[in-house]
Design a binder for these strands. Structure first.
Lengths: 340, 340
DNA sequence: GGTAGCACTCCCCGCACAGGAGTGCCAATG
DNA sequence: CATTGGCACTCCTGTGCGGGGAGTGCTACC
């Protein structure tokens, strides 16, 4: 019993099952693939694969279906890259290039992935901590409130309102603003704390309350990993005809609305060594997503780690090669666009 | 045959159907409501109501179900306001008051509505055109790009990148910034064009290109009705067990992702005279939403029209009184919060 | 106008049954 | 020893049938 053929059989099962959405039997397999052996032989291989936990049967007299473990093996070793068609590549390029600002880029990217993969798309906004600061603006609001606006080199704009114990002094605010911009502009947000620490001394003791408050808000904003934002599109694809269990989409929608869940997954997947990371079924470690796979990759790498991630979420029974190459392609264009 | 009782019967049918999700028959009706007459009498009334198009039977020997027209009559004349429980009121207040900035307020509001109504919630960001300008900021980006940031009194921050034909002159930018803020601050965005028109003359002809470009961007941003943003929450509620047709949620999700559809509906409903506007089934004029009703109301009225709208989308067979009062309650708190 | 009675319609549910797909096992084969 | 054909077996799926029940419309009556 050749080991190679067994893997061929697994690959064939995954491909057929993804294509037909039906458990695949030994006869159908030899008909659709030129394996050069008889159904009986395939059955022996299947028994071995089932023994190994790579496939399973929904019920006794049914065909086989890949398990999480089977998909995992397929993704890691058996799938071949599926390049996008050249019209697709062109579409990605032109669609993204016409974007106006960061919001627009993100919006277009997420729609693009949803359309390419026919699944739910996720795009994470560029991380604050890994961006460089371009400008800080302080806007007085009434007498005792200050609006702090920060703008990053990825074009992200973040705002916070600050409530003060005392009335605002316009000239102090102006001085603080200019000093902030001198010492902060161009720095990575992670390096900021050092630069800001020295700032306080330059002000009169009476004004240090204000300065410290502003600095605190800045640092707090940048530290907040939870402040990461994700955008979704294509949730309607969950309800497409042919989805395994239409009833099962409720928990999935719930999980997707819980941004916490997505952010955890995204950050976990950032640790993966592979450029395109995949979480299959229960690997997501979330009850609502146990029949779901998640394909993500980073974008915006400027010689080092990436700035954030994009991805696509679909049924266990998804077109992994296609999804992976679509996600990777969009990430590449995105990286290029953000570098301007 | 009393006309009054016929309306009582319709009300009873709507209430029972909403509660049980099953077609309601004449016997069940007299048992659950003290109508003081026999089932046979009710049957006559039902025949009349069916004749009038207010109710229908799914099939010959089934109970009756309200039609769009029936729900409409119920909403307009038969429903009685259902006040929220006082714990609910308190929850709304405390939940909204703890919000940080505008994004946070909107996010909390939309989650709140989703939770109160167990349906899909929609919150529209404060309209740019109906807000007042608080501050304009110009941030040079590289040599030939200018980032224009505007901040409204509702706390909304909007940004645009401007590409210039010539290199930037810092001093001109600074002058333009201060003049813009002098002439623009505190004005309604709709009044701006006048104020901005005079601005150009104050600059040297060589600089007017820049000035005009910035003014153009501002006006364009404010004019763009399409720039309205809406936020959703609770889409998972669409898939709750008990939804009439789980298959029908696909089209609904599609419609919700098409922000255009939502924005059209919201702006149409802003014309309604009633404080809480309702669109029932086909009244939405959208194929995906024909089994869906939409309840909205404005918020942020500062002596005049409202700044934007919030609402809840659910099945035809929804608890209209409950939804209407929940939406209205959140709108009131929202208005109060925004007024700070 | 309201009511009781009654025949009628049609859905829904459980059940049995046939058809079919797929398997596992075994004995035979190169 | 891997491979193969044959065969009995399992179990899902679709279908037809019949009974029970809910609800209606109609008619005669108060």
């Amino acid at each position: 019993m050749s080991e190679d053929r067994r893997l061929d059989v697994l690959r064939a099962i995954v491909e057929d099952y993804v294509a037909t959405k039906e458990p695949v039997g030994s006869r159908a397999l030899v008909e659709r693939h030129s394996l050069g052996v008889s159904p009986a032989t395939i059955r022996n291989d299947m028994a071995a694969l089932e023994e190994g936990g790579y496939i399973a049967q929904p019920h006794t007299s049914a065909g086989r279906v890949p398990t999480d473990k089977g998909y995992r093996l397929f993704v890691d070793q058996l799938s071949t890259v599926k390049p996008l068609s050249s019209p697709e590549r062109r579409a990605i390029g032109t669609f993204l290039e016409n974007a106006q600002d960061l919001d627009d880029v993100v919006d277009r990217a997420v729609r693009l992935i949803a359309q390419l993969t026919h699944q739910v798309a996720v795009v994470q906004y560029p991380s604050l901590r890994r961006s460089a600061l371009r400008h800080v603006e302080l806007v007085p609001v009434g007498h005792r409130h200050l609006l702090v606006v920060l703008i990053t080199d990825t074009g992200r704009v973040e705002q916070r309102t600050l409530e003060l114990g005392a009335d605002l002094d316009e000239t102090v605010v102006a001085r603080l603003r200019s000093r902030l911009n001198v010492s902060a502009a161009g720095r990575r947000l992670s390096e900021l704390p050092v630069a800001l620490g020295e700032l306080t001394d330059a002000f009169a003791p009476a004004d240090q309350v204000l300065v410290n408050a502003v600095v605190a808000v800045l640092e707090e904003t940048l530290a907040q990993e939870s402040e990461e934002r994700v955008v979704l599109a294509g949730t309607a694809n969950l309800a497409r005809v042919g989805s395994s269990d239409v009833r099962a989409i409720g928990p999935v929608l719930e999980a997707l609305e819980e941004q916490v869940v997505l952010l955890r997954l995204l950050s976990e997947m950032a640790e993966d060594s592979a450029t395109v990371a995949v979480r299959i079924g229960r690997e997501t470690q979330h009850d609502g997503l146990f029949e779901t796979s998640f394909v993500t990759t980073g974008y915006g790498d400027e010689g080092g780690g990436s700035v954030a991630r994009i991805g696509s979420i679909g049924p266990l029974r998804m077109d992994y090669p296609g999804t992976m190459s679509a996600v990777r392609a969009v990430a590449r264009y995105l990286t290029r666009i953000l570098a301007q």
